[in-house]
Amino acid sequence: MQRRHLLQSAAALAAPALASFGVAQAQSFPSRPIKLLVAFPAGGPTDITMRSLADNASKILGQPVIVENKPGAGGTLPAQQLQSAQADGYTVAQIPLGVFRLGYTTKINWNPVKDISYIINVTGYAFGIVVPAESPFKTWADFVAYAKANPGKLTYGSTGTLTSPHLTTELIAQKAGIELQHVPYKGSADLMLALVSGQLMAGADSTGFAPQVEAGKLRVLNTWGEKRLDKFPNAPTLKELGYDIVQNSPFGIGAPKGTPPDVVKRLHDAFKKAMEEPSYVAVLARYDMLPNYMGSADYTKFAQDTVGREKVLIDKLGLNK
Protein backbone atom coordinates (compact mmCIF):
# COMPACT_ATOMS: atom_id res chain seq x y z
CA MET A 1 0.00 0.00 0.00
CA GLN A 2 2.78 2.37 0.95
CA ARG A 3 4.58 1.62 -2.34
CA ARG A 4 1.39 2.26 -4.33
CA HIS A 5 0.86 5.55 -2.49
CA LEU A 6 4.42 6.63 -3.28
CA LEU A 7 3.96 5.74 -6.99
CA GLN A 8 0.68 7.69 -7.16
CA SER A 9 2.31 10.67 -5.50
CA ALA A 10 5.22 10.55 -7.93
CA ALA A 11 2.83 10.38 -10.90
CA ALA A 12 0.86 13.34 -9.55
CA LEU A 13 4.03 15.36 -9.22
CA ALA A 14 5.24 14.32 -12.69
CA ALA A 15 2.05 15.36 -14.52
CA PRO A 16 2.50 19.13 -14.08
CA ALA A 17 6.18 18.76 -14.87
CA LEU A 18 5.37 16.99 -18.16
CA ALA A 19 2.76 19.60 -18.99
CA SER A 20 5.18 22.43 -18.37
CA PHE A 21 7.74 20.58 -20.50
CA GLY A 22 5.21 20.51 -23.37
CA VAL A 23 4.55 24.24 -22.97
CA ALA A 24 8.28 24.97 -22.85
CA GLN A 25 8.81 22.85 -25.96
CA ALA A 26 6.14 24.83 -27.85
CA GLN A 27 7.52 28.16 -26.59
CA SER A 28 11.01 27.28 -27.83
CA PHE A 29 9.67 25.96 -31.15
CA PRO A 30 11.12 26.31 -33.69
CA SER A 31 14.78 26.20 -32.77
CA ARG A 32 15.96 24.96 -36.18
CA PRO A 33 14.76 24.99 -39.82
CA ILE A 34 11.42 23.43 -40.74
CA LYS A 35 11.07 21.20 -43.79
CA LEU A 36 7.96 21.71 -45.96
CA LEU A 37 7.37 18.82 -48.40
CA VAL A 38 5.59 19.96 -51.57
CA ALA A 39 3.80 17.39 -53.70
CA PHE A 40 4.71 18.73 -57.15
CA PRO A 41 7.92 19.65 -59.02
CA ALA A 42 9.83 22.91 -58.86
CA GLY A 43 8.69 25.60 -61.26
CA GLY A 44 4.99 24.79 -61.30
CA PRO A 45 2.19 26.87 -59.74
CA THR A 46 2.07 24.78 -56.54
CA ASP A 47 5.81 25.11 -55.99
CA ILE A 48 5.84 28.84 -56.72
CA THR A 49 2.92 29.66 -54.43
CA MET A 50 4.14 27.40 -51.60
CA ARG A 51 7.60 28.95 -51.72
CA SER A 52 6.02 32.38 -51.29
CA LEU A 53 4.06 31.08 -48.29
CA ALA A 54 7.19 29.44 -46.84
CA ASP A 55 9.20 32.67 -47.19
CA ASN A 56 6.52 34.60 -45.30
CA ALA A 57 6.26 31.93 -42.59
CA SER A 58 10.06 31.91 -42.16
CA LYS A 59 10.01 35.58 -41.17
CA ILE A 60 7.21 34.98 -38.66
CA LEU A 61 8.71 31.83 -37.10
CA GLY A 62 12.27 33.16 -37.01
CA GLN A 63 13.60 30.01 -38.69
CA PRO A 64 13.80 29.02 -42.37
CA VAL A 65 10.91 27.02 -43.80
CA ILE A 66 12.67 25.03 -46.50
CA VAL A 67 10.67 23.62 -49.42
CA GLU A 68 11.53 20.12 -50.60
CA ASN A 69 9.77 18.96 -53.78
CA LYS A 70 8.46 15.39 -53.67
CA PRO A 71 6.63 14.84 -56.97
CA GLY A 72 5.04 11.61 -58.10
CA ALA A 73 2.41 9.14 -56.86
CA GLY A 74 -0.40 11.53 -57.74
CA GLY A 75 0.78 14.14 -55.25
CA THR A 76 0.64 11.80 -52.24
CA LEU A 77 4.35 11.29 -51.47
CA PRO A 78 4.61 14.09 -48.85
CA ALA A 79 1.67 12.67 -46.87
CA GLN A 80 3.20 9.21 -47.05
CA GLN A 81 6.55 10.54 -45.81
CA LEU A 82 4.85 12.09 -42.79
CA GLN A 83 4.18 8.54 -41.59
CA SER A 84 7.87 7.99 -40.84
CA ALA A 85 8.75 11.55 -39.77
CA GLN A 86 9.29 12.68 -36.18
CA ALA A 87 6.15 14.22 -34.67
CA ASP A 88 7.99 17.36 -33.55
CA GLY A 89 6.77 19.97 -36.06
CA TYR A 90 10.03 20.11 -38.02
CA THR A 91 8.59 18.15 -40.97
CA VAL A 92 5.29 19.32 -42.47
CA ALA A 93 3.71 18.55 -45.82
CA GLN A 94 1.34 19.84 -48.44
CA ILE A 95 -1.84 17.71 -48.51
CA PRO A 96 -3.48 17.67 -51.96
CA LEU A 97 -6.95 16.18 -52.46
CA GLY A 98 -5.50 12.92 -53.81
CA VAL A 99 -4.43 11.98 -50.28
CA PHE A 100 -8.09 11.50 -49.33
CA ARG A 101 -8.69 8.87 -52.03
CA LEU A 102 -5.44 7.00 -51.36
CA GLY A 103 -7.07 4.36 -49.17
CA TYR A 104 -9.40 3.39 -52.01
CA THR A 105 -6.82 3.18 -54.79
CA THR A 106 -3.68 1.86 -53.06
CA LYS A 107 -2.95 -0.59 -50.27
CA ILE A 108 -1.65 1.50 -47.38
CA ASN A 109 -1.17 0.67 -43.70
CA TRP A 110 -2.16 4.12 -42.42
CA ASN A 111 -5.31 6.22 -42.33
CA PRO A 112 -5.34 9.54 -44.26
CA VAL A 113 -7.61 11.14 -41.65
CA LYS A 114 -6.37 9.69 -38.36
CA ASP A 115 -2.65 9.55 -39.12
CA ILE A 116 -2.08 13.19 -40.09
CA SER A 117 -2.28 16.24 -37.81
CA TYR A 118 -4.12 18.76 -39.99
CA ILE A 119 -2.67 22.24 -39.41
CA ILE A 120 -4.29 24.65 -41.87
CA ASN A 121 -5.85 24.83 -45.35
CA VAL A 122 -4.31 27.66 -47.35
CA THR A 123 -5.70 27.76 -50.90
CA GLY A 124 -6.98 25.53 -53.71
CA TYR A 125 -6.85 24.85 -57.40
CA ALA A 126 -9.33 25.82 -60.08
CA PHE A 127 -9.26 23.42 -63.03
CA GLY A 128 -9.98 23.24 -66.73
CA ILE A 129 -9.11 21.61 -70.04
CA VAL A 130 -6.77 23.36 -72.47
CA VAL A 131 -5.49 22.67 -75.97
CA PRO A 132 -2.62 24.16 -77.99
CA ALA A 133 -3.50 27.45 -79.67
CA GLU A 134 -3.11 25.91 -83.14
CA SER A 135 -5.40 22.98 -82.27
CA PRO A 136 -8.39 22.37 -84.57
CA PHE A 137 -10.52 22.13 -81.40
CA LYS A 138 -11.93 25.63 -81.13
CA THR A 139 -14.73 24.58 -78.75
CA TRP A 140 -15.58 21.71 -76.42
CA ALA A 141 -18.05 20.47 -79.07
CA ASP A 142 -15.12 20.09 -81.51
CA PHE A 143 -13.20 18.10 -78.90
CA VAL A 144 -16.12 15.72 -78.25
CA ALA A 145 -16.87 15.27 -81.95
CA TYR A 146 -13.27 14.25 -82.69
CA ALA A 147 -13.15 11.89 -79.70
CA LYS A 148 -16.37 10.18 -80.78
CA ALA A 149 -15.07 9.74 -84.33
CA ASN A 150 -11.65 8.51 -83.11
CA PRO A 151 -12.14 6.44 -79.91
CA GLY A 152 -9.00 6.31 -77.75
CA LYS A 153 -6.91 8.44 -80.11
CA LEU A 154 -7.33 11.85 -78.45
CA THR A 155 -4.44 12.24 -76.01
CA TYR A 156 -4.64 14.37 -72.90
CA GLY A 157 -2.15 14.90 -70.11
CA SER A 158 -2.67 15.47 -66.39
CA THR A 159 -0.50 16.01 -63.33
CA GLY A 160 -0.59 12.30 -62.52
CA THR A 161 -2.66 9.13 -62.35
CA LEU A 162 -5.55 9.35 -59.87
CA THR A 163 -5.13 13.10 -59.37
CA SER A 164 -8.23 15.31 -59.50
CA PRO A 165 -7.54 16.42 -63.11
CA HIS A 166 -7.22 12.79 -64.23
CA LEU A 167 -10.26 11.45 -62.40
CA THR A 168 -12.50 14.38 -63.28
CA THR A 169 -11.57 14.17 -66.98
CA GLU A 170 -12.41 10.46 -66.95
CA LEU A 171 -15.75 11.28 -65.33
CA ILE A 172 -16.43 13.94 -67.99
CA ALA A 173 -15.50 11.43 -70.72
CA GLN A 174 -17.83 8.87 -69.19
CA LYS A 175 -20.71 11.33 -69.19
CA ALA A 176 -19.87 12.52 -72.74
CA GLY A 177 -19.67 8.96 -74.07
CA ILE A 178 -16.07 9.32 -75.29
CA GLU A 179 -12.83 7.40 -74.77
CA LEU A 180 -9.59 9.33 -74.25
CA GLN A 181 -5.94 8.33 -73.92
CA HIS A 182 -4.44 9.54 -70.64
CA VAL A 183 -0.76 10.54 -70.33
CA PRO A 184 0.37 11.26 -66.73
CA TYR A 185 3.07 13.80 -65.83
CA LYS A 186 4.73 14.62 -62.51
CA GLY A 187 3.50 18.20 -62.42
CA SER A 188 2.21 21.26 -64.26
CA ALA A 189 5.59 22.42 -65.54
CA ASP A 190 6.24 19.14 -67.41
CA LEU A 191 2.65 18.98 -68.63
CA MET A 192 2.71 22.53 -70.01
CA LEU A 193 6.00 21.85 -71.83
CA ALA A 194 4.48 18.75 -73.48
CA LEU A 195 1.40 20.72 -74.51
CA VAL A 196 3.09 23.75 -76.05
CA SER A 197 5.62 21.52 -77.86
CA GLY A 198 2.82 19.56 -79.53
CA GLN A 199 3.38 16.23 -77.76
CA LEU A 200 -0.24 16.22 -76.51
CA MET A 201 -3.61 17.14 -77.98
CA ALA A 202 -5.05 18.44 -74.69
CA GLY A 203 -4.30 18.91 -71.01
CA ALA A 204 -6.35 18.79 -67.81
CA ASP A 205 -4.78 20.90 -65.10
CA SER A 206 -5.16 23.59 -62.51
CA THR A 207 -5.12 27.14 -63.79
CA GLY A 208 -1.34 26.94 -63.67
CA PHE A 209 -1.92 27.01 -67.41
CA ALA A 210 -2.88 30.72 -67.14
CA PRO A 211 0.51 32.17 -68.21
CA GLN A 212 0.56 29.96 -71.30
CA VAL A 213 -3.00 30.98 -72.21
CA GLU A 214 -2.18 34.66 -71.73
CA ALA A 215 0.92 34.22 -73.92
CA GLY A 216 -1.32 32.90 -76.72
CA LYS A 217 0.12 29.37 -76.61
CA LEU A 218 -2.93 27.55 -75.20
CA ARG A 219 -6.73 27.83 -75.46
CA VAL A 220 -9.17 27.05 -72.62
CA LEU A 221 -12.10 24.81 -73.63
CA ASN A 222 -13.81 24.64 -70.25
CA THR A 223 -13.38 25.27 -66.54
CA TRP A 224 -14.71 23.20 -63.66
CA GLY A 225 -15.93 25.64 -61.02
CA GLU A 226 -19.42 26.74 -60.05
CA LYS A 227 -19.10 29.82 -62.26
CA ARG A 228 -16.84 31.11 -65.02
CA LEU A 229 -13.40 32.34 -64.02
CA ASP A 230 -12.82 36.08 -64.32
CA LYS A 231 -9.52 35.46 -66.08
CA PHE A 232 -11.17 33.24 -68.74
CA PRO A 233 -14.66 34.71 -69.21
CA ASN A 234 -15.19 33.00 -72.60
CA ALA A 235 -14.56 29.49 -71.26
CA PRO A 236 -17.81 27.75 -70.25
CA THR A 237 -18.16 25.74 -67.06
CA LEU A 238 -18.90 22.03 -67.15
CA LYS A 239 -22.38 22.76 -65.83
CA GLU A 240 -23.00 25.12 -68.75
CA LEU A 241 -21.92 22.31 -71.09
CA GLY A 242 -24.51 19.98 -69.60
CA TYR A 243 -22.41 18.02 -67.09
CA ASP A 244 -23.46 18.18 -63.44
CA ILE A 245 -19.85 18.39 -62.25
CA VAL A 246 -18.11 20.99 -60.08
CA GLN A 247 -14.51 20.21 -59.14
CA ASN A 248 -12.32 22.45 -57.02
CA SER A 249 -9.40 21.22 -54.96
CA PRO A 250 -8.48 22.85 -51.65
CA PHE A 251 -5.10 21.99 -50.17
CA GLY A 252 -3.27 22.75 -46.98
CA ILE A 253 -0.51 21.65 -44.64
CA GLY A 254 -0.31 18.68 -42.29
CA ALA A 255 2.16 17.27 -39.77
CA PRO A 256 2.80 13.76 -38.46
CA LYS A 257 0.22 12.20 -36.15
CA GLY A 258 1.00 12.98 -32.52
CA THR A 259 2.57 16.39 -33.12
CA PRO A 260 2.04 18.32 -29.85
CA PRO A 261 -1.07 20.54 -29.98
CA ASP A 262 0.91 23.61 -28.92
CA VAL A 263 3.33 23.06 -31.82
CA VAL A 264 0.43 22.59 -34.23
CA LYS A 265 -1.05 25.87 -32.98
CA ARG A 266 2.28 27.67 -33.39
CA LEU A 267 2.53 26.43 -36.98
CA HIS A 268 -1.14 27.24 -37.68
CA ASP A 269 -0.78 30.80 -36.40
CA ALA A 270 2.40 31.40 -38.41
CA PHE A 271 1.01 30.02 -41.68
CA LYS A 272 -2.29 31.88 -41.20
CA LYS A 273 -0.41 35.16 -40.86
CA ALA A 274 1.83 34.19 -43.81
CA MET A 275 -1.15 33.55 -46.10
CA GLU A 276 -2.59 36.99 -45.27
CA GLU A 277 0.54 38.75 -46.56
CA PRO A 278 -0.07 40.72 -49.81
CA SER A 279 2.91 39.02 -51.49
CA TYR A 280 1.26 35.61 -51.11
CA VAL A 281 -2.16 36.84 -52.27
CA ALA A 282 -0.49 38.39 -55.33
CA VAL A 283 1.35 35.21 -56.34
CA LEU A 284 -1.87 33.20 -55.95
CA ALA A 285 -3.66 35.62 -58.26
CA ARG A 286 -1.19 34.81 -61.04
CA TYR A 287 -2.78 31.36 -61.20
CA ASP A 288 -6.39 32.38 -60.51
CA MET A 289 -6.11 31.00 -56.96
CA LEU A 290 -7.42 32.61 -53.78
CA PRO A 291 -6.61 32.25 -50.08
CA ASN A 292 -8.92 29.57 -48.65
CA TYR A 293 -8.48 29.45 -44.90
CA MET A 294 -9.56 26.53 -42.72
CA GLY A 295 -8.30 26.24 -39.16
CA SER A 296 -7.07 22.96 -37.70
CA ALA A 297 -10.48 21.71 -36.52
CA ASP A 298 -12.30 22.69 -39.72
CA TYR A 299 -9.53 21.24 -41.89
CA THR A 300 -9.71 17.94 -39.99
CA LYS A 301 -13.49 17.86 -40.53
CA PHE A 302 -12.96 18.66 -44.22
CA ALA A 303 -10.59 15.68 -44.47
CA GLN A 304 -13.20 13.37 -42.92
CA ASP A 305 -15.97 14.60 -45.22
CA THR A 306 -13.79 14.49 -48.35
CA VAL A 307 -12.77 10.87 -47.78
CA GLY A 308 -16.46 9.98 -48.03
CA ARG A 309 -17.03 12.03 -51.20
CA GLU A 310 -13.95 10.63 -52.93
CA LYS A 311 -15.18 7.06 -52.41
CA VAL A 312 -18.26 7.92 -54.47
CA LEU A 313 -16.08 9.15 -57.37
CA ILE A 314 -13.74 6.14 -57.22
CA ASP A 315 -16.70 3.75 -57.17
CA LYS A 316 -18.35 5.52 -60.12
CA LEU A 317 -15.20 5.14 -62.22
CA GLY A 318 -14.59 1.56 -61.08
CA LEU A 319 -11.06 2.33 -59.90
CA ASN A 320 -11.11 0.64 -56.50
CA LYS A 321 -7.97 -1.27 -55.58
Rank of each mutant, 00 (worst) to 15 (best):
G308L: 13
G128Q: 06
V264F: 07
V246N: 01
G72V: 11
K217T: 06
K148I: 08
Q174D: 12
A87W: 02
K175L: 05
F127Y: 15
T169C: 02
M294L: 15
P278I: 07
N248R: 06
E226M: 08
M192H: 11
A176K: 08
A26Y: 06
E226I: 01
D315E: 15
V38I: 14
T163H: 10
L37Y: 05
G22T: 06
N292E: 11
L241I: 08
D315L: 04
E134I: 12
V307W: 03
D115V: 12
L191P: 09
N69I: 01
K321A: 06
V144M: 01
Q181L: 04
Q2T: 13
N56S: 14
V264D: 12
Q247R: 10
G74H: 05
E214V: 05
K107D: 14
P41F: 06
N109Y: 03
T49W: 02
D288G: 04
A297G: 00
L37M: 12
I116H: 07
A93C: 07
A202Q: 03
T223I: 13
G98M: 03
V281D: 02
K316A: 15
M294A: 03
A19G: 12
K107I: 11
T306A: 06
L229A: 09
E134G: 13
G128I: 09
T49I: 13
L167S: 02
L13W: 03
K316Q: 15
F271S: 04
S249I: 00
V213Y: 14
M1E: 05
A57R: 12
A255I: 10
T139F: 07
A274T: 03
P45L: 00
K175N: 03
P71L: 08
P30C: 08
A19V: 05
L77R: 14
V220H: 09
V38H: 01
G160I: 06
V67G: 07
V196S: 15
R266F: 04
L53I: 14
F302T: 05
T46M: 11
M275Q: 05
A215F: 08
G98K: 01
L290S: 03
R32S: 11
L229M: 13
Q304N: 04
G308F: 04
F302N: 07
P41L: 00
P45A: 12
T159A: 09
R309E: 14
T207H: 12
A204P: 01
Q2D: 12
Y156A: 01
P256K: 05
T169A: 13
A149D: 12
V312P: 01
A39G: 14
A297T: 11
A303D: 09
A10D: 02
Q181W: 00
T49G: 04
R3C: 02
Y146Q: 14
P71W: 02
H166E: 06
V92F: 10
I178P: 04
E170S: 03
A73W: 03
Y185H: 15
Y185P: 10
D190K: 06
G75S: 09
D315M: 00
G254N: 09
L180P: 01
K107T: 15
I60P: 00
A54W: 08
N121Q: 13
V264L: 14
T163R: 07
A176W: 00
A189S: 14
P233W: 04
V67N: 11
L6M: 10
R4S: 07
P165Y: 01
G198E: 10
M50S: 14
D288Y: 00
E276F: 02
P64C: 11
V246C: 05
S84M: 09
A126Y: 01
S20F: 13
